[in-house]
Computed example of a mutant assay.
Amino acid sequence: MLLIAPVRAASLGFGLMQPAAVILFADPHAQAKVPEQRMRETFRLTPAEMRLLVALLNGQKLAEYANVASITYGTARLHLKRLLQKTGCHRQVDLIRAATQNPTDRIWGIFNESIGSDGSNATR
């Protein structure tokens, strides 16, 4: 995928009358690489919660994950509830969207507000 978008040149320091554009390249079929260690530490995710998140990002449905992980569907739902609670997301789709749109910028920008300055989970 190729995206070309105009930008305000003055905001980039090019001067008022200079044309400027941003060009982005992306592979729509590429899977997002999740910075697992950073996410585990930032959100205090358990290994089970992290495995679930990776499975969901790879397109697995919750029931499929439960079957593959040899856990009950209820246990998988409990892991998902805790994962959503820890990240500050309210729905599974919000979590996936935030993690896949731009894992290095978006996920930390959105979720940092759910983490207190001392590293503890803040309540929403």
Rank of each mutant, 00 (worst) to 15 (best):
Q31L: 14
E41W: 02
A48P: 02
L52M: 11
A66Q: 00
K33C: 11
R8G: 03
L83Y: 01
A32G: 04
V93P: 00
Q37R: 10
I4E: 13
G59T: 07
G119H: 09
P6W: 11
K81N: 15
P47Y: 08
L45T: 01
G116F: 10
Y73T: 04
A32W: 01
V22Q: 09
T72N: 10
L24T: 15
E49N: 04
V93W: 01
G88W: 00
H90W: 08
V54W: 03
A69I: 03
D94F: 00
R97S: 02
M17G: 12
A69Y: 04
M1C: 10
I110W: 08
R106H: 15
L24G: 14
H29G: 05
V68W: 03
R51W: 13
I71T: 09
Y73M: 06
S120Q: 15
A20F: 03
M39Q: 08
D27T: 09
T123S: 13
P6R: 13
A76V: 02
A10E: 15
I110Y: 06
L24V: 15
A63E: 07
A30M: 10
H29C: 06
S11L: 13
A66N: 01
A5Y: 07
G13K: 08
Y65H: 04
R51M: 14
E64D: 14
K86V: 05
W108I: 06
I115E: 02
N112E: 13
I4K: 08
L56A: 14
A122H: 12
T87W: 02
A10S: 15
N112Q: 15
N67W: 04
